[in-house]
Design a protein around this nucleic acid. Structure first.
Lengths: 110, 110
DNA sequence: TTAGGTACTTACTAAATGGTTAGAAATATT
DNA sequence: AATATTTCTAACCATTTAGTAAGTACCTAA
């Protein structure tokens, strides 16, 4: 028995919680995933749904989410422009997390 | 039908996701909850378990978690000091969230 | 010709967060 | 007498993140 066997699941670089948070942290990230959810949604709708977010932050988050493969983006070559976002297969897998977070808020935070 | 009936669960101040994140966001918060989990743990153990955290951040987070009623603290009047932390009833209710986050990391992030 | 709609971009500023270092307190051990 | 132990505090600085405000592009309708 080594003395450090006590720490079985220490949070180092391999910690699954840390890895998930690398992707999911950020003031707006989970709220955006929550709003996209199972639907296809346009940029403007999302902007109205995520009350208080600035255009800069919304675009920045969306680009980042697309880069991280949680969200996919489809732009139609129209004027005025039309861009649709939806969750990827990987993004859909975050929904159980979001559901738990929403449930916790509903049940415990007034 | 009003035109804004479309936005049924908009993320404004009453959004349960937003409310939960107010409490749970922060670089170290969920990792600390993950490490405390169902056990009673001393400050020093926690420091070793959450690899990379500074003493300042750990104490700051713990104080904040105690204030938010997610963690309870018991200090023994001994020298050298001994302080134990564990999750409150409310804190335990965050574990399903943490479990989902850990599962997501394990299954999807290398 | 002017205004409106949609999806962005850019430059700048402000605020929140995190890190480093040093130290304090009280006792036991060397 | 000096050192170690354990938990925690304070001052200061650096970095990261978020917010503000303005502008761009292109076409349509008034």
């Amino acid at each position: 028995m080594e003395k450090n066997l006590k720490i079985i699941n220490a949070c180092d670089t391999n910690c699954p919680v840390k890895k998930s948070l690398d992707i999911l942290s950020g003031k707006w990230t989970m709220m955006i995933l929550y709003q996209i959810n199972t639907r296809t949604i346009r940029y403007g709708e999302l902007k109205r749904a995520v009350v208080g977010i600035s255009e800069k932050m919304l675009i920045q988050e969306l680009n980042s989410l697309v880069e991280r493969k949680l969200v996919s983006k489809k732009a139609y070559p129209e004027i005025p422009p039309r861009v649709e976002y939806k969750l990827t297969e990987l993004g859909v897998k975050t929904l159980p997390i979001i559901d738990q977070i929403a449930a916790f808020g509903l049940e415990n935070l007034v």
